[in-house]
Each structure stands twice: as structure tokens, then as C-alpha cells.
């Protein structure tokens, strides 16, 4: 994805939900996209899949390429069909994302039947196979049950199986564990990591859980107000963040080894996308903001050693400080 810009026209004006986002993911690697609500992380993934409602959304620029094929010049129909074959998507709330009136097996293989001409029997076999793959016990019976008969964790497994039905090369997981309780979250993340390793898929993990990122991701993209403020391999980003926002985020993780202390928070609130501050969008909340941050264009992306980059005037200093 290169320089993607997504705009929404609202009653109050045009909002840039994604503003010049660039990222890439290789086969077998995991890219985590983190950021607060409204930072544009989900919108960018919907843009990849051709699922943005337009209007109000509009892709105002940039390009999304998959193995060299440009997706944004395709018709919406072609785009969706192409993504259906090559990219799987796991949605946040599996209960809402599964259709309540069809059996799980029907939904798992819907695309196979509609687009690849699978017979009912073939489809059933494949559905059981998929459920086995995501470790749903008693797959043979459960394949003909409805989503409401599944527990939250099992539903999310079904959701993952559904995304895998077409053997995608890339999987986008949009906050796959938000709606689940902590123990189940860990199981789902392990499952995703296993499946990804086994199939050598590219995985794009959209989350706001920094703990999850640390355990599964290779690369991390931190988003703020529609922009990538920092992109780095995950260990480096955690060890020496190069953007004050990343640093602040990491400091706000509650830590078990510092009991009794006050939880660090980032002061202020995420910017209103209708009135993004001039200069660096993060400057009103940034502890190191100086005059240069408050005016003009947002800070350029600074390339740093180790294939990292950060959009901060003081990237170098922030990185070495930590």
C-alpha cells in the first residue's frame, strides 16, 4: 500500500480518515497496525478489501498492490472478487459478522459453492476440514449448527475458518480478539500465529493491544490521525521508540512489576479529524513539542537505521533518549 488517502464526506465537511499511509507485508510475516480508535487503521483495511461504503467514503489517492496487481484501478466488482480469492478478512465481532440465519457450514463454504461450483457434499467435507483446522471440537456435528449456538471464542474460530476458506495468501485480522475475554484472546492469537506459520501467509493484525503485538508481530505500524507515525520491527519499536506517540503508548501499558504506581496516560484526546491541528497532529499532546511542530506541514517521514521510519522532527533524539 502506498500513500493511501481515504476521505469521508460528512455533514460538517470532508474528513481524511487515512492520510498518506504506506505499508507492506511479506508472505509469512506479521504486520501489526496499532493506534487509537479513529486513527484510520480499520478504514485502511476496508479500503484494501474494497468494502468502504462510497459515498460517504472516497479513496482520494494512493495505490494498493497485491503481488504487483493494482487493486484500486479495478471495478468494485473485480476488486471484491479478486480479494475474495487472495485476501481473507477476520472481523472484530464474530456474532455480528456471521449471518444468524444460516448454518456455520453454509457460511464457511458459501463462496466455494457460489464461485468455485462446489457440490453440497464437497462443501460439507471442506467445512469440516476448515473447522478442524481452527480446532473447533466435534466439527462433524457443529458444522450444521447456527452461530448463536457457539460460544464467543468458537465463533471467532469460525470467523477465522471462513476467512481461510479460499486459501488466501494474506489474512487481515481487524481486532480479532476485542470482543473476547482474556484467556480466549490468548487462544485465538496463538491459533492465528500457528495457522499463519503453517501456511506462510502474510498477516495484517489491526489492534490496539500492544501486548498482543509484542508476542506475534514482526513489524509494527503505529497510526495517529490517519498517518503512520512510526514503522519499525517490533523489538526495535518497543526497545527504542522513535516517535513520542509510540513512546507514550508504551508507557501507558499497565505493568505487573510496578504495582501501586499510577497508570501513565497520554494527556488530551485524539484530534477531531475535521480540525486536525496544524503541524504535527500529535503536538498538543506531545511532551517534546517545540515551535517547529506547531506550524506548517506535518513532519516528514524520517528514515532511520534498521529499516525504520518515523514522522517526527526529533525522531533521532527520541530514539536515542530511550
Amino acid at each position: 500500500m502506498t500513500d493511501l488517502v481515504v476521505e469521508f464526506s460528512t455533514a460538517d465537511g470532508v474528513v481524511r480518515a487515512v492520510d498518506g499511509l504506506t505499508y507492506s507485508v511479506d508472505a509469512g510475516r506479521t504486520l501489526a497496525i496499532v493506534g487509537e480508535s479513529g486513527s484510520g487503521k480499520s478504514v485502511s483495511s476496508l479500503a484494501v478489501m474494497g468494502l468502504l461504503q462510497s459515498p460517504p467514503a472516497r479513496i482520494a489517492g494512493g495505490s494498493i498492490r497485491f503481488n504487483g496487481t493494482e487493486l484500486l484501478t479495478m471495478s468494485r466488482k473485480q476488486h471484491r472478487a479478486y480479494c475474495g480469492e487472495h485476501i481473507g478478512m477476520v472481523f472484530q465481532d464474530a456474532l455480528a459478522a456471521l449471518n444468524p440465519v444460516y448454518t456455520v457450514g453454509w457460511q464457511l463454504t458459501e463462496a466455494l459453492r457460489a464461485r468455485h461450483g462446489f457440490s453440497r457434499r464437497q462443501a460439507r467435507t471442506r467445512a469440516i476440514e476448515l473447522l478442524d483446522m481452527v480446532k473447533v471440537p466435534a466439527a462433524r456435528q457443529r458444522v450444521s449448527e447456527y452461530p448463536h449456538q457457539f460460544s464467543g471464542g468458537m465463533r471467532q474460530r469460525v470467523m477465522i475458518a471462513m476467512a481461510l476458506a479460499m486459501d488466501p495468501e494474506v489474512l487481515i485480522a481487524d481486532e480479532p480478539t476485542t470482543a473476547l475475554d482474556v484467556t480466549v484472546q490468548a487462544q485465538i492469537m496463538t491459533l492465528l500465529a500457528e495457522i499463519q506459520a503453517e501456511r506462510q501467509m502474510g498477516l495484517i493484525l489491526i489492534t490496539h493491544d500492544l501486548g498482543v503485538v509484542a508476542t506475534v508481530a514482526d513489524q509494527v505500524t503505529v497510526m495517529y490521525a490517519g498517518r503512520a507515525v512510526e514503522q519499525a520491527p517490533v523489538l526495535e519499536a518497543y526497545g527504542s521508540p522513535a516517535h513520542p506517540y509510540t513512546k507514550a503508548l508504551l508507557q501507558s501499558i499497565p505493568r505487573l512489576d510496578r504495582k501501586g504506581g499510577e497508570l501513565e496516560v497520554i494527556p488530551g484526546r485524539p484530534p477531531d479529524l475535521l480540525a486536525v491541528p496544524a503541524g504535527c497532529p500529535f503536538h498538543p499532546r506531545c511532551e517534546r513539542a517545540e515551535d517547529v511542530c506547531r506550524t506548517g506541514a506535518p513532519p516528514p517521514v524520517v528514515e532511520l537505521p534498521g529499516g525504520r521510519s518515523a514522522a517526527c522532527h526529533f525522531a533521532q533524539e527520541v530514539m536515542t533518549d530511550a
Binding site: 472478487a81 475474495g84 480469492e85 456471521l98 444468524p100 458459501e110 476467512a163
Partner: peptide, 30 residues
Amino acid sequence: YNSDHVRAARSKGLSERHVRVFHIVRNSSI
């Protein structure tokens, strides 16, 4: 039309017509 399950169905690469018949009209029939 705006529900999550319809978006999920679209993400499977199904045609808009298929989504409309099987996911929108079918579910709204309740």
C-alpha cells in the same frame, strides 16, 4: 445493508447480487 454480516459476506468476494438475495433480502424477511 450496513450490517457487519453483510460486510463479511462481501469480503468473501461474493457478487453484490448474491449478497443482496442471500444476506439482505433473506435476513430482512424476518
